[in-house]
Lab assay of single mutants.
Amino acid sequence: GATAVSEWTEYKTADGKTLYYNNRTLESTWEKPQELK
């Protein structure tokens, strides 16, 4: 079967924080998503 690919993209901001963006739900979060833990 196909492996579930994470929908989350990780961005590094200018101040060194990490922003997570979900390509499916168009949601963005500063918290690390469950799927990435």
Results as ranks from 00 to 15, higher is better:
residue 1 G to N: 13
residue 26 L to N: 14
residue 37 K to L: 15
residue 15 D to I: 03
residue 32 K to M: 09
residue 9 T to G: 04
residue 6 S to E: 10
residue 14 A to M: 08
residue 12 K to I: 13
residue 1 G to T: 13
residue 33 P to W: 01
residue 32 K to E: 09
residue 5 V to F: 13
residue 25 T to Y: 03
residue 29 T to F: 10
residue 34 Q to T: 14
residue 17 K to W: 04
residue 14 A to L: 10
residue 7 E to P: 05
residue 22 N to G: 01
residue 33 P to F: 02
residue 33 P to R: 00
residue 20 Y to R: 01
residue 9 T to Q: 09
residue 23 N to A: 08
residue 13 T to M: 14
residue 36 L to F: 08
residue 13 T to L: 09
residue 17 K to A: 05
residue 23 N to P: 06
residue 24 R to L: 14
residue 3 T to A: 13
residue 2 A to G: 13
residue 17 K to Y: 05
residue 13 T to A: 08
residue 17 K to M: 05
residue 26 L to T: 09
residue 24 R to Y: 10
residue 35 E to W: 05
residue 4 A to L: 13
residue 14 A to F: 04
residue 16 G to Q: 02
residue 31 E to I: 11
residue 37 K to W: 15
residue 35 E to M: 06
residue 9 T to A: 06
residue 33 P to A: 01
residue 2 A to K: 12
residue 34 Q to E: 15
residue 25 T to R: 00
residue 19 L to Q: 05
residue 1 G to K: 14
residue 36 L to H: 08
residue 36 L to V: 08
residue 32 K to R: 10
residue 2 A to Q: 13
residue 33 P to G: 02
residue 23 N to Y: 07
residue 29 T to N: 04
residue 8 W to Q: 00
residue 2 A to D: 12
residue 30 W to L: 09
residue 3 T to L: 10
residue 18 T to R: 03
residue 30 W to G: 06
residue 1 G to L: 13
residue 34 Q to K: 10
residue 20 Y to K: 00
residue 37 K to A: 13
residue 34 Q to M: 13
residue 4 A to V: 14
residue 12 K to M: 10
residue 7 E to K: 03
residue 10 E to M: 06
residue 12 K to R: 12
residue 28 S to R: 09
residue 18 T to F: 06
residue 12 K to L: 13
residue 33 P to K: 01
residue 32 K to T: 09
residue 9 T to M: 11
residue 26 L to S: 10
residue 7 E to S: 05
residue 25 T to S: 03
residue 9 T to P: 00
residue 8 W to S: 00
residue 20 Y to T: 00
residue 32 K to V: 11
residue 4 A to N: 14
residue 13 T to I: 04
residue 4 A to I: 12
residue 30 W to R: 05
residue 32 K to H: 03
residue 31 E to D: 11
residue 21 Y to L: 08
residue 12 K to N: 07
residue 6 S to I: 08
residue 18 T to Q: 03
residue 4 A to Q: 11
residue 35 E to D: 11
residue 33 P to Y: 03
residue 37 K to T: 13
residue 2 A to W: 06
residue 11 Y to M: 11
residue 1 G to D: 13
residue 28 S to E: 11
residue 7 E to H: 07
residue 31 E to C: 13
residue 25 T to H: 01
residue 10 E to F: 05
residue 11 Y to Q: 07
residue 25 T to Q: 01
residue 9 T to Y: 10
residue 5 V to T: 13
residue 11 Y to G: 03
residue 14 A to G: 07
residue 18 T to A: 03
residue 29 T to M: 06
residue 37 K to V: 14
residue 5 V to G: 10
residue 15 D to S: 09
residue 27 E to A: 04
residue 13 T to E: 04
residue 34 Q to W: 10
residue 16 G to D: 03
residue 32 K to S: 04
residue 17 K to F: 04
residue 31 E to A: 05
residue 36 L to G: 05
residue 16 G to R: 00
residue 30 W to A: 10
residue 23 N to R: 09
residue 16 G to V: 00
residue 22 N to S: 01
residue 31 E to P: 02
residue 27 E to Q: 08
residue 2 A to M: 13
residue 19 L to V: 11
residue 37 K to Y: 11
residue 20 Y to M: 00
residue 15 D to E: 08
residue 22 N to I: 00
residue 32 K to Q: 09
residue 8 W to L: 01
residue 9 T to N: 06
residue 11 Y to K: 09
residue 23 N to D: 06
residue 28 S to L: 15
residue 21 Y to S: 02
residue 17 K to E: 09
residue 31 E to L: 06
residue 10 E to K: 03
residue 9 T to E: 11
residue 6 S to P: 12
residue 17 K to L: 07
residue 12 K to E: 10
residue 13 T to V: 04
residue 30 W to E: 13
residue 26 L to A: 11
residue 8 W to T: 01
residue 26 L to F: 13
residue 17 K to D: 07
residue 5 V to R: 11
residue 21 Y to V: 15
residue 9 T to L: 10
residue 14 A to K: 12
residue 31 E to N: 05
residue 1 G to H: 14
residue 36 L to K: 07
residue 17 K to H: 08
residue 4 A to T: 14
residue 7 E to T: 05
residue 23 N to E: 11
residue 3 T to E: 11
residue 21 Y to F: 14
residue 12 K to H: 11
residue 21 Y to Q: 07
residue 8 W to A: 01
residue 28 S to F: 15
residue 24 R to V: 15
residue 30 W to T: 11
residue 8 W to N: 01
residue 10 E to Y: 04
residue 34 Q to A: 15
residue 28 S to M: 15
residue 37 K to R: 12
residue 1 G to S: 12
residue 16 G to F: 00
residue 8 W to P: 01
residue 9 T to K: 06
residue 27 E to R: 03
residue 26 L to V: 01
residue 24 R to F: 13
residue 20 Y to P: 00
residue 22 N to W: 00
residue 2 A to I: 14
residue 5 V to Q: 11
residue 35 E to G: 09
residue 36 L to N: 07
residue 11 Y to S: 06
residue 26 L to D: 09
residue 17 K to T: 08
residue 33 P to L: 02
residue 37 K to S: 13
residue 2 A to Y: 09
residue 18 T to D: 04
residue 11 Y to H: 09
residue 6 S to V: 08
residue 14 A to E: 11
residue 36 L to W: 06
residue 7 E to W: 05
residue 26 L to K: 15
residue 34 Q to P: 15
residue 14 A to S: 11
residue 22 N to P: 02
residue 27 E to K: 06
residue 20 Y to G: 02
residue 36 L to P: 07
residue 30 W to S: 12
residue 19 L to R: 06
residue 15 D to F: 04
residue 15 D to Y: 03
residue 11 Y to D: 02
residue 20 Y to H: 02
residue 24 R to N: 10
residue 29 T to D: 03
residue 26 L to W: 06
residue 34 Q to Y: 09
residue 20 Y to A: 00
residue 10 E to G: 01
residue 34 Q to V: 12
residue 11 Y to A: 04
residue 27 E to G: 03
residue 24 R to S: 10
residue 33 P to V: 01
residue 19 L to G: 08
residue 33 P to M: 02
residue 9 T to W: 07
residue 12 K to S: 07
residue 23 N to V: 14
residue 27 E to P: 00
residue 36 L to D: 07
residue 11 Y to V: 14
residue 5 V to D: 11
residue 15 D to K: 03
residue 5 V to K: 14
residue 27 E to S: 03
residue 3 T to Y: 06
residue 15 D to H: 04
residue 30 W to Q: 09
residue 2 A to L: 13
residue 26 L to Q: 15
residue 7 E to G: 06
residue 16 G to W: 00
residue 23 N to T: 15
residue 27 E to I: 05
residue 35 E to T: 05
residue 18 T to K: 05
residue 12 K to F: 09
residue 14 A to H: 08
residue 5 V to P: 11
residue 2 A to P: 14
residue 24 R to T: 12
residue 27 E to L: 04
residue 25 T to D: 02
residue 33 P to E: 01
residue 21 Y to M: 08
residue 37 K to P: 09
residue 27 E to C: 15
residue 28 S to P: 02
residue 35 E to I: 07
residue 31 E to Y: 04
residue 3 T to V: 15
residue 3 T to I: 12
residue 2 A to T: 14
residue 14 A to R: 08
residue 12 K to V: 15
residue 25 T to G: 01
residue 8 W to F: 01
residue 35 E to F: 08
residue 14 A to Q: 10
residue 17 K to V: 04
residue 28 S to A: 09
residue 22 N to L: 01
residue 4 A to W: 07
residue 6 S to N: 11
residue 31 E to F: 05
residue 1 G to W: 09
residue 31 E to Q: 06
residue 11 Y to F: 14
residue 22 N to D: 03
residue 2 A to N: 12
residue 5 V to E: 12
residue 28 S to Q: 10
residue 34 Q to S: 11
residue 15 D to A: 05
residue 2 A to E: 13
residue 10 E to S: 06
residue 36 L to Y: 10
residue 35 E to N: 10
residue 29 T to I: 07
residue 31 E to H: 07
residue 10 E to D: 02
residue 19 L to M: 12
residue 25 T to V: 01
residue 25 T to E: 02
residue 10 E to P: 04
residue 4 A to Y: 07
residue 23 N to K: 11
residue 32 K to W: 03
residue 37 K to N: 14
residue 29 T to L: 05
residue 26 L to G: 15
residue 23 N to I: 10
residue 26 L to Y: 11
residue 10 E to Q: 07
residue 5 V to M: 14
residue 21 Y to R: 08
residue 11 Y to W: 08
residue 9 T to F: 10
residue 22 N to V: 00
residue 29 T to Y: 09
residue 10 E to N: 01
residue 17 K to R: 15
residue 8 W to I: 02
residue 7 E to I: 07
residue 34 Q to H: 10
residue 12 K to G: 03
residue 8 W to D: 01
residue 7 E to N: 06
residue 13 T to W: 06
residue 3 T to Q: 12
residue 34 Q to I: 14
residue 19 L to T: 03
residue 12 K to D: 04
residue 35 E to Y: 06
residue 3 T to P: 12
